[in-house]
Structures are given as structure tokens and as C-alpha cells.
Design a protein around this nucleic acid. Sequence first.
RNA 1: GGUCUCAUCGUCUAACGGUUAGGACACCAGGUUUUCAUCCUGGCAAUCGGAGUUCGAUUCUCCGUGAGAUCACCA
Length: 483
Amino acid sequence: MTSIRTRFAPSPTGFMHVGGVRTALFAWLLAQQSKKINGEGTFILRIEDTDKVREVEGSIQQIENSLKWLGISWDEGVDQGGPDAPYKQSERLAIYKEWAQRLIDAGRAYADPYTPAELEAFREQAKAEKRPFLYRNHRPENPPTWDGTQPLRFKSDPKPYQWTDAVMGNLSTGEDAIDDFILIKSDGYPTYNFCHIVDDAIMGVTHVLRSQEFISSTPKFLNLYEALEVERPTLATLPFVMAIDGKKKLGKRDGAKDILEYAKEGYLPEAMANFLATLGWNDGTEQEVFTVQELIDAFTLSRVQKSPARFDEQRLLWLNGQHIRALSLDDLYARVEDFWPVVAKNTDEAHKKQVLALVQDRLKTLADLPILTEYFFTEPSPDWEMVSTNKQLKKLNQEEIVTLLAATKAVIADIPESDFVAENIQDTLNQLLETTGQKPGILFSLIRLAVSWAPFSPALHDTLATLGKDTTLRRLTESIESL
RNA sequence: GGUCUCAUCGUCUAACGGUUAGGACACCAGGUUUUCAUCCUGGCAAUCGGAGUUCGAUUCUCCGUGAGAUCACCA
């Protein structure tokens, strides 16, 4: 494998959604793989800001933050430079002008003399005659010298194309797909169609990954590569990521979320990377859960799916749980810093870690932490409806409840402070089961509610051990008194 | 409308032309002495339709059908 150079080239028009991030991820994986195999591999972050109208303030920062969150770093790019700096297209206008001049000199570009109204008339005429509109059918015979105030058009060489796409396989089109498109707009900025090809050539990009919507523009690009006499990179067209319920491609207008929203919702970046990578790609084995390193090793363009995939949040949620459980306690602790319930604010690290260990298996997202742990940090309010609506406990009358809780208090109080650990508590409670003649479903459920007043909690003996002897006794007392 | 692309369980997918069409998510049932979750076991569930090629098509070809993309001085 030769050394791979890939790039991610977003336009700064807002936040990043999952579709865009997946394209970046695949390109990055390819570069990392190349780095690993032969020591060389480059991932470039280039900003395509040639549409000043659609540009959104702060987008570049947002894009960088999104990539960083996912663990994607770039070797060359806007904020850190590189051999082909600048990496912002609005700062490269002179380069595009120079390349455009080459095309003009070679007779492959000309000034567009028509007004927008005239163009519109051509279009309507074509529509009325039910034939496709092609600008080249109206190519002016003696175009004016280009002075930068008119758009500069590519003089295309229409012909059928056949090419191989690294994902889609063999593709072909007829000559109708080729037209005289605009290279440089009348505002002096180049179009995407032109400048991305120039930049990819200058930057030595070997693999161009982009989403499916560009597939029908590819023949135009092929035509331009020839006119520019530059080598064509490997083209890889990724299928769309579709909206969850609909059949439309996932876009900002169709409810696509900012990737950073998922961070706020408690998703792990490695889970998101795993999810995005396996959305439309698999390594041919039955492995479902991948670390980022495993993805780097296993990724191949040839195994990317040709058909669009739907964004399945259930699967993302499951993967997130898998990755949370794979974390060491210390690592998890570092990640949940912003997710503790506010009442845990002044709790010491040791206790928080103890609680965290108990709920690690129960977290689907980091944001589940408060509901799972709040009662460890603050006194819960007794809610006897939880007992009266419980299908096992509702048979108990008030007297029985008091008797059982009082008995529990007594045996708990008998455990020496220094022996108040899960194992001993379990033994004690098991004995209590025998002396009271109760089933675990009744006695344990009652105790669990009396000390936590939570809809669910970890194993009872673990919960009590973590609460500590004093707290356990206090809550039992409070619960009895509140009855 | 022109051009182009795609098509296996509800979803994500596996299957060098030969498999009882496999796995995962979700869902359902059972188990792990309370709950929730984890974990384990089992269950439900698919090759868009029609021709052809072949001893044999999920797989190759053609025609339909369905879905999507694109036809900008947006990227």
C-alpha cells in the first residue's frame, strides 16, 4: 500500500451532523491505517469557504470541536498549517486564479457573457421543449475577454465516461452529464467544482471520500482532471446516512442533530465512532463492538456498503452501553465529571467512585447517572405509593410493614461498623429471611424502597454497604416514622 | 422530464453460484435468591416481482417495480 493522503473538506455553514462526521471518520481511518502500515499517512482538514453568503459564524470552531471530540486529529489544516498552507480556500484565491488562467490559455475556459435573465430564458426554453438544459448548447462564439466581472466557465469536452469507484464499483455516464460549469463566480470566488480539484491536486490527496450526492457531478470532475492534466485520485463515494424513520438522507433540515449534542447526552466518542463506522461498513466477521484501534486495523473501502443505511439510535444506545462497561472505573470516573447529580457536588471522590462502580452496568448513557445515583447523595422522600402499587408489597398491611422494617433495623444495628460490608450484610439479610419467614421478593423489595425510594437500584447488600450503616439505619427509621 | 445510483429479517448486516439464508440491535419468553440493568438460554422475523443463463441462483444478465441523488454564479 502506498502512503495515503486523505482530507475532510467541509464548508463552514453550521454544525456537523452524523453524515458529515462519518465521511471524516472514514477518511481519517484510512490515513491512520496507512500511518500504521508504512509510517506515512496524512489526514488534512481543509475549509471550503467559498460561499460567503451561506457561511455561518463560528462554524470552523464547531467543526474542529466536533472532530476533536470524536478523537479525529488532523496532520495538516486550518489551525496548524502544513506544507500547502493556507488550508482555507478563501485565502487561496490567487492560486485558483492562476490555475484558471492556465485553462484560459489552453482554450479550455471562457467568460460567460449572459445575464442571469438570459440564462433563465434558456433554461425555460429547454424545459418547454422537454429536453435537458445544457449551457454548452449556448456557448458564445466570441466570448469577451475575461475581466473577472463575469463568471468564468469551463469549456467542457463532452464524452461518455466509465470509471471505478472504490465503494460503488464500476460507474458510467453518457456525455449529457458533462456541461460547461462555472469555475470562478462573478464575485471572484471559485466554485467547489473547480477549487476542490485544484486543492486536491496541490495537496497530493490520494483518496477522495465524499457522500453520494456528488456521484452525478463526478463526470464533470473527470473532464476537468483531463483539462488540467492532473492525476485523478481514487474516488470513493459513500452512501447516505438516512433519517431514522424516513427515507430521506439525513440532513440538517430533516432533524439531523449536531454531533456535539450526543456528547451532551452522555454518549462516548468511541461508541459514536463504532456506530458510525459500522453504519454501512463491516469487516466480514461477526464482530459488532470495535475499539478505534480495531477500526483502524480492519477498515477497508471495498467493504463499505453501496446502499444507504438508516440511523438507528437503538443500536447507538446499545453500543454506548457496551463501551461504558468496557471502561475502567478510573476512566469512567473521568468521563462522568459533568454528569453527577448536583447533590453529589460536595461528595468525596472515593464515595463517588464506589457509587459509580455500582451503577456502571446500568448506564446506557452518562446522562443516566443522576436518576441512578441521586439517593446516595441526598435523603429521599418516602413515597408509600411505591409500596401500595407494588404487586408483591401491596398485600402487606401497615403493621406488617412496621414489623419487618423494625426487624431489619435490629439486625443491621447488630452488625459492627467495621464489618458493614456487602458480604456480611447479605448473610444477615438471608438470616432475616428465615426468621421472618418472608420471601426475598417481599422483604428485599421493602427494604430496598425504604432506604432508597427509587424505582430501581443495585443489589440490596451492595446498596446498603455503599450507603453505610448510619445512613441505612437513619433511613429505615425515617421511613417507619413517616408511615 | 434527462442523467445516474441502489434493493437480504422492522433496523444494521453476512453468505469466491451449492448453507436448514448466519450474526447484531429491537421485540417476546425463561434463567441468574427483590427492582432496574448487566450477563446467559431460547423464540419471532428477510433474499422486491418476472423472465433468462445454469444441474443449481440471494449471488450473473435483461425487463419491470420501488427508493434515492442530481440537473445553481451551494458545497
